[in-house]
Amino acid sequence: MVSHTIFSSGMIIVLAFLNFDKCRSMQEGLTGRYSKPTCVNIPRQLSLCQDIGYSRMRMPNLLDHESLSEVQTQSVSWLPLVRTACHEDVKLFLCSLFTPVCLDRPIYPCRSLCEEVKRDCEPVMSQFCFPWPEMLRCDKYPEDNNLCITAQMGNASNANNSAITSNTGQEKLMNVYTQCHNDAPASLILEYYCKAEFVIRVKIDKVRDSTDGKKYIANKKKRKIYKKGTLKKRDLNRLTFWATETGFCNCDIITKGNDFYLVMGKKAKDNKLIMTFAHTWVTTKDFRYATRRFKKTDCRN
């Protein structure tokens, strides 16, 4: 027996099955791995999918992430796109995959939802050199039926396009989407510090274009490590950052020379160090406060 439940937040319509007991609970730490269908709480650190109308998610998720730490790391890259409001259902679509509602069977987004979000958001992503990824290919999802998630909020393409074409809107979008800053508020710096796998102050010796995107080769001697994460000795010895996943092709603040930069990022499966946030090293009040709070910040909150 199936009953339809509409969450009060208006974010999602799902099918609520009565036999929830098939979803087994396990230890819900960020480091645990889940190879069988399991119900876990959506962690507070997973900022992309907060306030979505439910608090429990299915693991592994619909992108085949097997740990909450992997979900959190991969989802950070999509926060800027949600902030552009390229489509009002972009958060619904992404969270249906990153944090699928915990039922006794997976509930996928409908193909029409994917196509609508892609139609309005792909141009924004392309503008900042961020291609629509293979993992979100729309023909992977079912055509509209009673067992998939359809669009709920319509689209915001007209309002979004008008914002992008204006100079103010363009600057705002650049600032949000590329994570490339020289005057970010302390709260944003600390937010990305908590989400990043590694945080390092570096000087850049070389900037090169390649078939895989732009890469930044840092001076391995003139560095300060604030968070090491999973970086190994060989990573720190070569200290090459890539920008293929963040749209840095439109960011010109990082140049080779004597200037220091604060670089945050993650280590990809192919061991490339991907930048998710960068900031010129400045002496503003907010920047000094944020860097002094790194070791004192409780990233669990």
Score class of each variant (00 low, 15 high):
S3L: 08
S8V: 08
I12F: 02
L15R: 13
L15F: 02
L18A: 09
S25N: 11
S25H: 11
M26I: 10
Q27E: 15
G32E: 15
Y34Q: 07
S35R: 11
K36H: 09
C39F: 03
R44Y: 07
Q50L: 04
D51A: 04
M57L: 06
P60I: 01
S69G: 04
V76S: 05
P80G: 08
C86T: 02
H87D: 12
E88I: 00
L92H: 07
L92R: 13
L97G: 03
T99A: 05
P100F: 00
C102E: 04
L103F: 03
P106W: 01
E115M: 14
D120W: 00
M135P: 00
P142S: 04
E143P: 01
I149M: 03
T150D: 08
A151S: 13
Q152L: 07
M153G: 10
S157W: 01
T165L: 14
S166E: 14
M174Y: 14
Q179S: 15
Q179K: 15
H181A: 14
P185Q: 03
L188A: 04
A196L: 09
A196W: 09
I200A: 14
G213V: 05
N219K: 07
N219D: 15
K220A: 13
R223L: 15
R223T: 15
I225V: 15
Y226E: 13
Y226A: 14
K227Y: 11
T230S: 14
T230V: 03
L231S: 04
R234S: 13
L236T: 08
R238E: 14
R238Q: 14
F241W: 09
G247K: 08
G247T: 08
F248W: 15
F248H: 13
K256A: 12
G265F: 00
K269E: 15
I274H: 14
I274Y: 10
M275E: 08
T280G: 04
W281V: 01
V282S: 13
V282K: 11
V282P: 03
T283V: 10
F287T: 01
R288D: 11
R293G: 04
R300Y: 12
